[in-house]
């Protein structure tokens, strides 16, 4: 083939046998080629284990080496009848909803406060630090701070506030402490996510709003929130997913010496106890799988609801 000058690539003749249908090079073919490795990998590492978990939830099994027997719906019925699982699930809901409201209130308050503040980036980093602290270190620190003879009660005593001294980690207080701990450790993470949306907002919008005499709250309500809505929506969904799996912070508060007290149990803690069987026990993998499925179903419902509630048309800056 010869050519006398540059020819647009799309005009190149294609050699084709008689009767042969033109080969498609459209997006569908490319999609298949590019997606195949990802689909295969996801099937192997996500779909197959997930289906196995569903299967497991209908069995009695203590793990390799032990017989597996059909359990029907018994593992789910056990969850239904269990006061402890009900309490753990309720604790999880309170933690996700109550903790979530507090976390995002803090995030938005900080967004209002940090705008135009000198050293805002540093302040953001400081708030993020608890997220990267090891739960083991948090546990040790909490033991030092919150024990009846710990630093918090000592401090209260030294400034004459004996009436506020408490057994902070006693059953009647431990859940509130866990919620507070979770808020403390997670707020920086969600602030970082929402702030990435806020950073994209052109500064002149705020300048014009200031010239128009808008207060900080009005600026937040009319500029920051609408223009960072997508980032905030993503953060809310991420919170719902991670909040429903709350585990590490509970262990940081109650330690690893055995089963956490009822008041401190979350659904994920229940799943852990079933998976390990506790200090003396053997794994109850069927029950653990059923708890996992229950957590997944509730999480999925929350995420779908949240996506519907948070759906908005994207606001574009002219």
């Amino acid at each position: 083939m010869s050519s006398t000058g540059p020819v647009p690539r799309t005009d190149l003749p294609v050699l084709r046998r008689r009767g042969e249908r033109p080969r498609r090079r459209g997006p569908d073919t490319l999609f298949g080629r590019f997606a195949a490795p990802a689909i295969t990998t996801m099937t192997l590492v996500v779909a197959v284990p997930s289906l196995f978990t569903v299967f497991l939830s209908f069995t009695d099994w203590r793990g390799l080496g032990s017989p597996m027997s059909a359990a029907g719906l018994r593992n789910y019925a056990a969850l239904w009848y269990s006061d402890t699982f009900r309490t753990a699930m309720l604790n999880t809901f309170v933690l996700v909803l109550g903790g979530g409201v507090a976390i995002f209130a803090i995030v938005f308050l900080m967004l209002i406060g940090l705008r135009q503040m000198r050293g805002a980036a540093f302040a953001r980093s400081v708030v993020f630090v608890p997220m990267i602290v090891s739960p083991i270190a948090i546990g040790v620190a909490l033991g030092f701070l919150l024990n009846p003879n710990g630093a918090v009660n000592d401090l209260l005593g030294s400034i004459g506030l004996e009436e506020f001294q408490r057994a902070w980690l006693a059953p009647d207080m431990v859940f509130q402490m866990i919620v507070l701990g979770l808020i403390w450790s997670m707020s920086g993470y969600y602030l970082a996510i929402v702030a990435t949306g806020v950073d994209q907002i052109p500064p002149y919008l705020y300048e014009e709003a200031q010239l128009a005499g808008a207060t900080r709250w009005q600026q937040f309500w009319m500029i920051t929130l609408p223009l960072s809505w997508e980032a905030a929506s993503v953060a809310v969904v991420l919170w719902l997913i991670s909040g429903m799996k709350t585990f590490e912070i509970v262990i940081a508060f109650v330690g690893t010496q055995g089963a956490p007290p009822l008041q401190a149990r979350t659904a994920a803690v229940q799943q852990f106890l079933a998976t390990t069987g506790g200090r003396d026990g053997t794994p109850q993998l069927g029950a653990a799988a059923a708890i996992g499925i229950a957590i997944f179903v509730f999480t999925a419902v929350f995420v779908v609801l949240a996506r519907r509630l948070l759906r908005r048309d994207a606001v574009e800056v002219a």
Binding site: D83, T84, P171, L262, A274, G278, D280, G281, A287
Partner: peptide
């Protein structure tokens, strides 16, 4: 250990007896 209750009946031990024992021991 624990009269083998935790080893033989782990779900009952973790979900029934330990929480109730905590409540009894706390005086609630």
């Amino acid at each position: 250990s624990h009269d083998f209750a935790g080893a033989m009946h782990p779900t009952w031990w973790n979900d029934v007896l330990l929480p109730l024992s905590d409540q009894l021991f706390s005086g609630s």
